[in-house]
């Protein structure tokens, strides 16, 4: 049997019983379910059941759904609109689309998969009931697994040299059925692939915000805290999917706090920020 499942069955049971989930968990469940036919169908059935309980029809959202939409959606919408206002090139380009915000489960880097796996385990409700020893065992096992990752994988996120203080952002192309590779300057990446990021910072920079501009609009991602020791890099929790055609322009804004990074990414005047730009053409075979 699999030790841990990537699916969201536990959360669906909770959803069936409670009708709601904590906001971040609900977001994660939806993100997974929209990319997973098995869990997507189950999510629909569970929510239809709750709708039937609450409204006696499947075509009316439950009070929990309405409340969740109101609280969770507002920040995303405002961020998208502010991103539009701060865009410099054209007004038409400002479409902060949710359509491309589906994360490729299969395109995650091994490090991120492991981190998500550990997080999922930590969030599991059963942990509270099985005692601290089980938690410690899991965390230790995760640590051992981390150390046992193949060396060529760790090199992808490895040190770029000592004494480097300027922030760096490396960009990787992650095709669905091919190996991850670094994109330098104005590189190519096939349609349908995902992008992955590794960032390194030195004092005073601690946070980064990434704006992703496609022909369909602009999206602001982050802020992310860069938890890498000086001279090394850390993967960002961000894997945007590439559109079918065109070009993607990526701008990373490094700052000394999350709010400053976000403000600078929105185009507000902020001192001491560093911007790194990449441009990726959609080209080549998947």
């Amino acid at each position: 049997m699999a030790l841990f499942t990537p699916h969201v069955d536990r959360q669906l049971v909770h959803l069936a019983n409670e009708g709601v989930l904590p906001p971040r968990q609900w977001t994660r469940v939806l993100r997974h379910a929209r990319g997973c036919a098995r869990c997507g169908a189950r999510y629909e059935r569970v929510m239809n059941l709750r709708r039937m309980f609450a409204r006696d029809t499947v075509t009316e959202p439950t009070p929990g759904e309405l409340e969740s939409l109101e609280s969770r959606g507002l920040l995303a919408v405002l961020a998208a609109v502010e991103g539009e206002v701060s865009s410099e090139s054209s007004r038409q380009a400002a479409r902060a689309d949710r359509l491309h915000k589906e994360y490729l489960e299969g395109a995650w880097s091994p490090g991120r998969r492991l981190w998500a796996w550990v997080l999922q385990t930590w969030n599991a409700p059963s942990l509270g009931q099985v005692g601290g020893a089980w938690v410690v065992s899991l965390m230790a096992a995760a640590g051992l697994l981390w150390l046992s990752l193949p060396s060529d994988t760790t090199r992808e996120w490895g040190t770029r040299g000592e004494g480097q203080s300027a922030p760096v952002l490396r960009l990787f192309c992650v095709p669905e059925e091919a190996e991850l590779r670094e994109v330098r300057g104005q590189g190519d990446c096939p349609a349908g692939a995902a992008l992955a990021f590794a960032a390194g910072v030195g004092a005073p920079y601690t946070h980064v915000v990434v704006t992703v501009r496609t022909e369909k609009g602009l999206r602001v991602e982050g802020p992310f805290e860069v938890k890498a020791s000086p001279g090394s890099e850390a993967a960002l929790d961000l894997t945007p999917k590439l559109p079918d055609t065109g070009e993607v322009e990526l701008t990373a804004v490094f700052a000394s706090s999350a709010s400053e990074a976000l403000a600078a990414a929105r185009g507000e005047p902020v001192k001491d920020v560093v911007r790194v730009q990449h441009r990726v053409r959609i080209a080549g075979k998947p």
């Binding site: 939806l30 379910a33 629909e44 929510m47 959202p61 969770r72 959606g73 949710r98």
Partner: peptide, 12 residues
């Protein structure tokens, strides 16, 4: 729009 796509359509 079903429950699965409601959030995406709502935000869009």
């Amino acid at each position: 729009v079903g429950p699965l796509d409601l959030e995406a359509a709502h935000q869009e």
